[in-house]
Design a protein around this nucleic acid. Structure first.
Length: 208
DNA sequence: GCGACAG
DNA sequence: ATCTTGTCGC
């Protein structure tokens, strides 16, 4: 299924010239692993203001299997995202885009599903090889898999562990890196993802 | 058979 | 993802 859907992914910039809102998404699970908490944080780029928070709690019936993460997370994210009252210009996800064994990570899945520009920004590697980027914020190294560049290992803060950036849908690698960097304030992780992460973290604690 | 493996 | 413990840098 992923190999087939990967054919629908567009790795070229097809996003507004003026990106004014970015949606950060994330999910978490209860101790049991059977309930999923998903959230989306819509941020206005110019002011760094959170315009809307959407969330959902649904049963998690698909297990976590490396390479199949989107089948665990997308059902919960769908319920949360359908509550948005305005479409985002860009979506940034906690997971890979095309830096995936079949070039169809979570960000691609969400991007194709909603036909929105998406970026994959993962904290660790799933596949591919890369050199260690220089220590300065903004430094990057190509992430290569079977002879093809599928993403970049990008340093978002001086001397801090880099993140794994890859196009999800309708964005180039260059644009994915640009926005990832632009959305990182004082931390390693882009602000919209951090906000979504905080939300699902609270939901998880409250359910316990 | 063994190691790797987003969240 | 989540949890726990040890280490590092400011």
């Amino acid at each position: 299924m992923q190999a087939e859907l990967a054919g629908l992914v567009l790795i070229q910039d097809r996003l507004p010239g003026r990106v004014s809102t970015v949606l950060g998404v994330d999910a978490a699970y209860d101790d049991d692993g059977s309930r999923a908490f998903a959230a989306g944080a819509l941020m206005e780029v110019a002011t760094r203001t959170v315009l809307q928070i959407v969330s959902a709690e649904v049963p998690a019936d698909f297990p976590y299997i490396p390479g199949l993460l989107s089948f665990r997370e997308v059902p919960a994210l769908e319920v949360a995202l359908e509550k948005l009252t305005q479409a985002p210009d860009l979506v940034i996800c906690d997971g890979q885009g095309i830096a995936h064994p079949r070039r169809f990570g979570l960000a691609c899945h969400l991007g194709v599903l909603y036909d929105l520009p998406t970026i994959g920004c993962a904290k660790t590697r799933l596949t591919g090889e890369a050199a260690t980027p220089a220590a300065a914020r903004g430094s990057r190294a190509p992430l290569v898999d079977t002879g093809r560049t599928i993403g970049a290992v990008l340093r978002t803060q001086d001397g801090v562990k880099p993140v794994y950036v890859s196009p999800g849908h309708r964005v180039s690698l260059e644009t994915a890196c640009h926005w990832t960097l632009a959305l990182c304030g004082q931390y390693r992780i882009p602000e919209p993802i951090r906000v979504a992460d905080q939300i699902v973290g609270r939901m998880k604690r409250q359910a316990r």
